[in-house]
Write a protein that binds this DNA or RNA. Structure first.
Lengths: 158, 158
DNA sequence: ATATATGCAAAACTTTTGCATACAA
DNA sequence: TTGTATGCAAAAGTTTTGCATATAT
């Protein structure tokens, strides 16, 4: 899929975001290392959730696989990254929504690519839905995820 | 999570559903075997998506692991089951939405349980959102998924 | 100086596959 | 009867972990 909507291209240039990341690192007792900075920059630069092999490819052998997994795990635990799965058999990772922007995913069932979209005009309805769930079932909703599946424009052309 | 909403408890008792399943089996060139019937009944009886270990547990050693995976794979390919992942590191499976009913998921971040909910009153908004995506990005949406994350009522009690 | 992070190698877990046999149509 | 499905064993892919060394604070 072509990156339909690139979300906050330079989040890591935004001092407020960097400050909040540092706050979360500190709260989790994590040190600010080269490997963590590299991984974070790589995830933040991507227009859509990244898989471990994709990050490995982007980063190079600087960060070996096991360290990559460990770094990612730490960043997820610190609530800086979020782990996603799209029934591909492996996980993808993106910046936590409070650090980036709330958005949804377009998953192409033909080529497997994942892109991001923002749908501001529907967030109200989604919030209402969450409240309804909570009232009706007692389940305390803290966040939601809306993904669309279909065929991306690139695949449709062929 | 307590099964918040049990969807069509006896789908496999509904002759129309059974007929449609048989149609899809035939279309995919699949034979009606004991293993497939067993797996299908087990998935259909569950109030929420099931993992392979859960199915193994429910079914017993009648169907060995490799066959279980193969049966599930065949049923997914025949569009009778759908494969889902909730960032748990493994897949879950449920009846295809055309065979059951369109619904959404409640994922407890405390205990990991998954429950189903129907939200009829919001389907219109979701359909509108899908149309908006399509118009704005060229991505041809064929289905959507809405999951809620939070704490189930059981976990909240403790 | 000291506790945390990394790198390497080995392992764990989920899922897939090759091949001989059993079974559905 | 004939091709498909199953069972077993082995393998592949993804992710985790033990332990010695390197590094951030």
């Amino acid at each position: 899929v072509s990156p339909v909507v690139a979300l906050r291209p330079g989040v890591l240039q935004d001092p407020a975001v960097v400050t909040e990341i540092e706050r979360r690192m500190a709260r989790a007792g994590l040190r600010w290392t080269r490997a963590r900075r590299t991984v974070l920059e790589s995830v933040a630069a991507a227009p859509a959730p990244r898989s471990v092999p994709e990050l490995q490819e982007a980063i190079g052998r600087d960060v070996p696989l096991s360290s990559l997994y460990r770094v990612i795990g730490d960043l997820v635990a610190a609530r800086i990254l979020i782990k996603l799965e799209f029934a591909e058999g492996f996980a993808r990772f993106e910046l936590d929504e409070e650090l980036a922007a709330h958005h949804h995913h377009l998953v192409c069932t033909r080529c497997g690519a994942v892109a991001d979209v923002e749908l501001h005009e529907f967030e109200g309805a989604l919030t209402d839905a969450a409240r309804t769930v909570q009232r009706r079932t007692g389940f305390a909703v803290s966040m939601h995820r809306l993904d669309f599946f279909g065929v991306c424009s690139t695949c449709a052309r062929d």
